[in-house]
Design a protein around this nucleic acid. Structure first.
Lengths: 303, 303
DNA sequence: ATTTTACATGAAATATATTCATTGATGAAT
DNA sequence: ATTCATCAATGAATATATTTCATGTAAAAT
């Protein structure tokens, strides 16, 4: 009855990755002949060609493209399930795959992860920052088990809890004219270079909540990948950046940077931890959330 | 290298469904012995027990529960992929699995589906109304290919287009005092029985956009499954309901019911069609959206 | 106590997958 | 233009894996 097997999906992926049956065979520790036979049988049973034989190379047909998409989606899930099951054998352990949709949260995450790893020695933590279909898709698609994001989604199947609230501030360098104002106004940025993470403008709160309502754009906009470099740039007077207050204050010890409130009331932000509802009562997942919340209580008291 | 195969997932599911290896074997057209051997080998290779042998019955262990969840998620996807591939063989055809998160839209959907089936004779349309993890989850989890919903989600990986805007109105029976008012006010419902579909209150616009802002609750609230019965009830004076205007007017020909605007400006609603981004350029999916939009143009002109 | 029902197991039979050895075809290099 | 290298396809042989058959054991049910 069933035709499509895991090996077929693996072959499709290997051929796509390596470009030929022969190379794919090597990766799979099989002979070219074995793959050729297997593929032919599959094509016969499905009644559809997976590749067009063009000369001595293989070009995926429409069906092949489709199968590849299926394979890329399912094989990692099978592999992960197998991994997870093997871990069941070695005591109560697992892997926690955390996705990040919030650049500066990385620093925060580290503070949670280190004590977590200490109290859950059998759990592996894996942090991912790139997803094919966004964080929500990654959660639903079992690419990750937990999502750190400023945009929660209260939909069935998912559960989001706030773990961290903070103020988004403007970070300025030494001797900057805004350093002494009570709060920055959008007009202040007209002649500035704004440094941000390289994401689309509608995901940057300084645009959506501060600049765009006032109809103002900064003179220049410079995308930078890492927080460190970003703050180095600010400290050397090459521009200003919008970051969480706690992050700015942390760096203020090392670099000559200062935090300035954005607008009279500041920009208030929250970070959420999202998980699949079905995972809610897995102990090591619940424990992570508890730890994150405890950290929140702690910071609320001390600041 | 790879241990976990499709057959294992199938066995897990079959045992869960039928309660015993013997019964599972029958469903899978294999002998009990074959399954026993296969399961034992899997357990040996993973190093973990999938069932606890209690007397002569099998109770899933924690690992077994996990494996069952994985199986229930992946096996349908494998089956669907296989189906789809076989369809590639018989000309350009496919299956369009439509999920509905909007009860009264069913009537609307039928109007789109009939001409669609006529112009795409090779495409099977399948409508689902129940999802384990909500419509969004079903879309991400490849349970469905298209979602009809009033709540779009603009996130990477998904694409939503509005296909239908309408006014949500109050439907009242013969001789009802509200029949002649210009528009209903929340107070008018204090002594009424409100009939709705059986979904949570925060998914009912008459509550969220009309009653709750005024802090008012109707005297009684009666959930009914089907539109037909709902309107029969209204026509016989047993209560009032909130439905799309077009639906109310359609039924007004057969039953003595009338539509009354909710509030001075009425409740404006839109229905969206959501798909996975990756499916955007599948011809028969694009065609469905086109058809829905064409229908929208048509109704805009005629009403 | 006996029968029934369910899972486990070893050996045998069967089916399936893989390799080996070879062919034919297509580019690339001389 | 010929040779060489590379790649996929194929048939037969072989190896491996799966499934059955026959039987055993244990727990419920009668």
């Amino acid at each position: 009855m069933a035709i499509l097997e895991r090996i077929h999906l693996a072959i499709i992926r290997a051929v796509d990755q390596h470009g030929s049956l022969t190379a794919a065979a090597e990766q799979l520790h099989l002979t070219q002949s074995a793959l050729s036979h297997t593929v032919r049988k599959l094509e016969d049973q499905l009644g559809v060609a997976i590749w067009r034989r063009e000369g001595r190379s293989l070009q995926p047909t429409q069906a092949g493209e489709y199968l590849l998409a299926v394979a890329n989606r399912l094989v990692p899930q099978l592999a992960h399930a197998e991994e997870r099951l093997k871990q069941f054998a070695l005591g109560e352990s697992g892997a926690l795959r955390i996705g990040m949709e919030c650049h500066p949260c990385y620093q925060w995450l580290l503070k949670i992860v280190s004590p977590y790893l200490a109290s859950w020695p059998t759990v592996d933590v894996d942090v991912k920052q790139k997803f094919q279909f966004g964080g929500i898709g990654a959660l639903f698609g079992y690419e990750i088990d937990m999502l750190v994001t400023p945009d929660p989604l209260f939909k069935p199947g998912l559960r989001f809890v706030p773990v961290f609230d903070y103020e988004q501030v403007l970070v300025v360098g030494p001797g900057h004219p805004l350093r002494d104002v009570a709060h920055a106004k959008p007009e202040h940025l007209i002649e500035e270079t704004l440094i941000t993470y390289p994401v689309s403008i509608d995901r940057l709160d300084i645009y959506t909540q501060f600049l765009m309502p006032a109809g103002i754009r900064p003179k220049r906009h410079k995308p930078i990948e890492t927080t460190d470099i970003m703050l180095q740039m600010v400290a050397s007077g090459r521009g200003v950046a919008a970051l969480p207050r706690w992050l700015a204050e942390e760096y203020a010890a090392k670099l000559d940077v200062a935090a300035v409130r954005l607008g009279r009331h500041g920009i208030a932000k929250q970070i959420f931890l999202g998980i699949r509802e079905t995972d809610a009562d897995i102990d090591y997942i619940g424990a992570f959330i508890q730890l994150a919340r405890a950290h929140q209580e702690h910071t609320r008291k001390t600041t």
